[in-house]
Design a protein around this nucleic acid. Structure first.
Lengths: 258, 258
DNA sequence: TAGTGGTCTAGACCACATA
DNA sequence: ATGTGGTCTAGACCACTAG
């Protein structure tokens, strides 16, 4: 930052050079960008504290209020978490509060039972045209494909097909998945350094195929909620495509419009 | 507000009484609450400008920055809209930008065609147990029921059943609906003084009944996306329950997870 | 007691819109 | 030229956490 500190108190008059032009983002957005870059580079690990607001202010040569506004935005996007009296921390999918941030399926009555995964497949495949386009890869690119059933208590309710670029996720295996407890995004974050921060979903109703119906213990042709999800990491880079088929006779997908 | 302005500059020392206790919200939230109350009372009409930040600051005896933070929150919740150089305005469903804020259905390819409504029914009914509970009314309370088909271009894609409390919406009629152009929430806002600011939705896949299938021009039993929506006005008061059945062969419901 | 984030203030200047 | 929101600063004090 090329900010010039004022010579004295708030009434110091014309005290700085015109720092930015019309093409330039506000200072706090520039700071925000620097913070995101540090996160992307892994300068601060998930779960770790970032430097205090005052330290960042002196590092970037801006006021604490400007750093604060940059952090405010990142907190609202769940990239950072504030803890009063303790500091500001890099968000992680291992925290209980963030565990099911992306899981919108809930039982019609009663509180959400604990979920668990049963993994059916894990192997390398070539990217079809549709999935390649979504992930921004060339057709035929190497992917890892995972198929699993999500159980709520002991009720199988979601059949997920997950496609990941083979590069970063090369070492993902059925064994590693089977032994892992907790949300997949936690595993991706810890083992592969890929942190999901945002996702776009497309929902539709479809009839169950025979292949979908069996693991979900429903009849072929019964209505299923199909959820296509494209997940992004830092810098709007798509990193996972997922297609879920959900039984919604006693569950529903919840959403808030604001 | 019982804030005491400081005697002089920023270094005036212990300059105010302890304004709030542990049970009390921060000043900017108190200001925010006062603003929402003014909105609820209709002190400023939808589309109109609210007083400037400096005027509100002097009215509430707080600094402009505190008013600003209160307004910031209301802007992020789409209750207010800022226009640089012009002022801050009460949001309205008549603005082009807000027209389809709550419409999440989009065509799989191509840009969204214009939508139009075909109204099938409009009449008084008694509230069933489920809908009464959702709207916070007693079972059997008087409701207005509207049924319509939403068309994208000339494609019928959504069959909506809408229930409204008969009190505020007493004068809603088939004639009034037929002659009205634009989003329903615009009509509710202008004609009935009920402004929707938030909604909760529950989605599931269902098989089309014969009654659903006919107006949507699909076969009985084909999969439909059912969307149950509860809409709220100021103060978390539920004011509309809506059940939509959507054809999702060439359309989808889009959602962003953040 | 020291350090952190949370709130509040006051004032400066900038960018935009209107007259 | 004036008034609006938008950005930035500096400093005060509060509330919470931990050694």
């Amino acid at each position: 930052m090329q900010a010039t500190p004022p010579s004295s108190g708030p009434d110091a008059g014309s005290r700085r050079a015109p720092r930015r032009s019309a093409v330039c983002a506000p200072l706090y957005r520039q700071i925000r960008h620097l913070l995101v870059e540090s996160l992307r580079r892994g300068e601060w690990a998930p779960g770790a504290a970032i430097p205090s607001e005052t330290e960042l202010a002196s590092r970037f040569q801006v006021s604490q209020g400007t750093v604060r506004k940059a952090i405010d935005e990142l907190v609202s996007e769940h990239l950072l978490i504030r803890r009063q009296g303790k500091g500001t921390f890099v968000a992680t999918h291992h925290e209980p509060r963030a565990q099911y941030r992306f899981l919108r399926l809930a039982p019609d009555r009663g509180e959400p039972a604990g979920t668990s995964s049963r993994f059916l497949e894990c192997g390398r495949v070539g990217a079809g045209a549709e999935i390649a386009a979504r992930l921004g890869l060339r057709s035929g690119a190497a992917l890892i494909h995972v198929r699993r059933v999500l159980l709520f208590g002991d009720l199988p309710r979601v059949l997920d097909d997950i496609w990941l670029p083979a590069g970063p996720f090369r070492s993902l295996s059925a064994e590693r998945l089977a032994q892992y407890k907790g949300p997949l995004y936690g595993l991706f974050e810890s083992e592969f350094g890929m942190r999901m921060i945002r996702a776009e979903e497309q929902l539709r109703a479809v009839a169950a195929t025979a292949e979908d119906a069996a693991p979900l213990q429903v009849s072929t042709g019964s209505p299923l909620l199909r959820v296509d999800r494209l997940s992004y990491t830092y810098g709007d880079r798509p990193i996972e495509f997922r297609r879920g088929h959900c039984v919604t006779t006693d569950f529903h997908y919840r959403n808030t419009l604001t």
